[in-house]
Nucleic acid binder design. Structure first.
Length: 268
DNA sequence: CGAGTCCTGTGT
DNA sequence: ACACAGGACTCG
């Protein structure tokens, strides 16, 4: 579910609640939500001061400190995870953290794919991810893109290429840049590659402004839905007329993910 | 590259 | 009963 704009919205709404607070207690109702040993993690988190809440691609990083030692709580929401402030514990609560002011941060996750991982430093897996889509410069993006053999859709979903895009915003960006998802990255000319860079930035910025896209499960940390679905142009519109030209929007599987594009606006 | 896995819920 | 869902990992 959540991609960069959703995770950024969670970060923005959650940061003022948790920054500067101390973890009173953490617990895992579904042990596999914890990457690592749940008991040891609960113990490691107790008494930690949350210094900052950051976003890294689709990951949330809680920067922790206890007795002068820094560490990290890495959270990935995956498909259906939500971090809700003072959320009512229920059937889908997989983990939670209570803070020294009595606030509870409750992790609700229907499909149980979400993960919390405590670590002393940024895990190597994360360190290997690509740049932030909103930080990479145009020329560097173009060079990076055109050096790759993969199809555009697969490449945009590859977190080692860019960190933070997912299925919705990959399709939206390709549509806005009028690029066919099956085109090879290497074959994209410099001009179209620049268009794609601009399209990625635009769609992410607008989506963040709207608080993300709630298709079904996604909520920010206050429980509010995102509003970007109203601005979605291509994702999930298979069979409907293209908003630009009226042609029938195609939906097909690419890299095992449903991919939406307009066969007239986005030529091979 | 594709296919299977981890999971539960919803819609046809 | 079956397909599908915003993600990522592992295996051929």
């Amino acid at each position: 579910m959540p991609e960069l704009p959703e995770v950024e919205t969670v970060r923005r709404t959650l940061a003022p609640v948790v920054e500067g607070r101390i973890v009173a207690e953490a617990s895992f109702a579904w042990p596999r939500t914890c990457a690592g040993d749940p008991r040891a993690t609960e113990e490691a988190l107790r008494g930690q001061r949350i210094e900052r809440l950051e976003r890294y691609g689709k990951y949330l990083l809680f920067r922790l400190r206890r007795r002068g030692r820094e560490s990290l709580l890495v959270v990935h929401l995956r498909m259906t995870g939500n971090l809700i402030v003072n959320g009512a514990p229920g059937e889908f609560t997989r983990a939670s953290m209570s803070l020294d002011d009595g606030t509870a941060v409750v992790f609700q996750d229907v499909r149980k794919f979400g993960r919390w991982q405590w670590s002393e430093r940024l895990p190597a897996r994360l360190a290997a991810l690509g740049p932030e889509p909103l930080e990479i410069g145009r020329d560097e993006f173009v060079a990076r893109l055109r050096s790759r053999r993969a199809r555009l859709k697969a490449l945009l979903l590859d977190q080692e290429f860019l960190r933070g895009l997912g299925n919705i915003y990959a399709d939206e960006a390709l549509f806005r840049a009028r690029l066919h998802p099956l085109r090879t990255a290497m074959g994209v000319g410099p001009r179209k590659a620049r268009d794609l860079h601009a399209a990625i930035r635009a769609v992410l910025r607008h989506a963040i402004e709207a608080g993300g896209t709630s298709i079904r499960d996604y909520r920010d940390s206050r429980g509010a839905q995102g509003d970007f679905l109203r601005q979605i142009r291509i994702y999930g519109r298979g069979g409907e007329p293209c908003v630009t030209c009226g042609a029938r929007v195609r939906r097909e599987l690419v890299a095992q993910r449903s991919t939406h594009y307009c066969p007239r606006c986005q030529r091979q």
